Simulated scan of single mutants.
Amino acid sequence: MAVKPIVIESFLELAASHPVLDVRSPSEFNHAHIPGAYSLPLFTDEERKVVGTAYKQQCREQAIKIGLDFFGPKMRPMVDEVEKLLQAHHFQQANINPINNSNDVPQTVLVHCWRGGMRSGGVAWLLDLYGFRVYTLIGGYKSFRHHILEQFELEVDLKILGGYTGTGKTEILQKLERLGEPIIDLEALAMHKGSAFGHLGQPEQPSQEMFENLLGMKLLQWHNTNETAGKAIWAEDESLRIGNLLIPQPFYKQMRSSPCYFLDVPFEERLDFIVKDYGKADRDKLIGAVLRIQKRLGGLETKTAINSLIENDIRSSFAILLKYYDKWYLKGLDSREPGTPVIALKGSAVDHVRNAQLLLNQLKQN
């Protein structure tokens, strides 16, 4: 066998059923990577720095020799690690699809580094020598990033789910997905619920680059999957910023010019929902979240909302905040691209099952 370099489209197609080995340094991987990839660094961060310095200050040959000194002791452990990974992967795939999972077929791995150069070449040579079927990515991770950024420029058929805070839009999206509708949950990808309180109970947000990778892969899946043919993607109406992250401008522009299905649920019903959702959060963190919006909320309202939290009157505090968010959401709704349809729907309660069906029924009528 021989290592086979392939283009990004073929690489991602194979990645759906075979492990992707990212041989860049740990810091490169942790910053952003191909979703689902496995970190198998050829060099540590410090080793990469040493090799890079030798390449710039001495010569290519000296850098390669230093790299080989680092690589040599890692060869067997690296092969052992890939074997374990493939065993786990084979077991997982056999459970998903017991057919065509023969052990007689050489096990396949996909390898990439930053630009498809010496790092991926060295690891691919080792794994090929051992007997694995190895594919490398032409252009490396850099070509993947270019491919991802291209996705935001492509036209997408979007349906935007709108509604004031506390409507239960995330739960509605999840229900639509269970009913077979394509969705993109931007807040799940961003690991943030979108408001000043959106970080509460959430893990640390990914980097901007990783967020774009996750979103781009969702768009790729929509473009390339036959099951989504003729179906629009549902996405929640969002501001440009979700926590510390920005929705890519070309995609956001499409969101703002796509039909918006605005679900209007009574204020008290929504207030009940957010009290239940956020009411058990740490009081100091809630107060900190209120202080982050105090300039727009106003001095008196900020003071009243915080005093209510201190006195454990969560409902009164959240009522102030909900009115604030309703005002800002309505302003954003009015600033959508001229001529963009906004279809208003009346929901009697925060009920994701009924409201998801309400949306689908309206879609059929349209």
Rank of each mutant, 00 (worst) to 15 (best):
M1Q: 06
I6V: 15
E9M: 03
S17F: 06
L21M: 04
V23I: 02
S25A: 15
S25H: 03
P26L: 04
E28G: 05
A32G: 05
I34C: 01
P35G: 10
S39L: 10
F43I: 05
T44P: 04
D45G: 09
E47Q: 13
G52T: 00
A54M: 08
Q58N: 13
R60K: 15
Q62M: 06
L68K: 01
F71G: 03
K74D: 00
P77E: 10
V79R: 08
E81H: 06
K84T: 12
L85C: 05
H90N: 10
H90L: 09
Q92M: 07
Q107L: 12
H112F: 13
H112Y: 12
W114Q: 08
G117Y: 07
G117E: 09
M118C: 01
M118E: 07
G121A: 10
G122N: 11
A124K: 12
L126M: 06
L127G: 13
Y130M: 12
G131W: 08
R133S: 15
Y135P: 08
L137F: 06
S143N: 14
S143T: 12
S143I: 02
S143G: 03
H146L: 09
I148V: 15
I148M: 14
L149N: 15
E150N: 15
E153G: 02
D157N: 13
G163L: 02
G166L: 01
T167C: 10
K169P: 05
T170G: 05
I172R: 12
I172G: 00
L173G: 09
L173Q: 09
L173V: 01
L176R: 00
R178M: 07
I183D: 00
D185W: 03
L189W: 01
L189A: 08
G194W: 04
S195A: 12
H199Q: 08
L200W: 05
G201L: 12
G201D: 13
Q202P: 03
P203Q: 07
E204Y: 03
Q208P: 08
L214R: 14
M217G: 00
M217P: 00
M217H: 04
W222T: 07
W222F: 09
W222V: 07
N224A: 13
N226Q: 15
G230L: 10
E236L: 05
D237C: 14
E238G: 12
I242L: 14
G243T: 11
L245M: 06
Y252N: 11
Y252H: 14
S258T: 13
P266M: 07
E268F: 02
E268N: 08
E268M: 07
E269C: 05
E269D: 03
L271M: 04
L271K: 04
D272E: 09
F273L: 03
I274W: 01
D277R: 11
Y278W: 08
K280I: 00
K280V: 00
I287A: 05
G299E: 11
L300C: 03
E301H: 09
T302E: 11
K303Y: 09
T304A: 15
A305R: 13
A305M: 09
S316M: 06
A319V: 04
A319E: 15
Y325L: 02
Y325Q: 02
K327T: 11
W328P: 00
Y329S: 07
K331V: 10
L333C: 04
L333G: 06
I343T: 12
A344R: 15
G347A: 14
S348R: 08
A349L: 04
H352F: 15
V353S: 04
R354E: 11
A356V: 08
L358I: 07
L359S: 11
L363S: 06
L363N: 02
Q365T: 15
N366H: 12
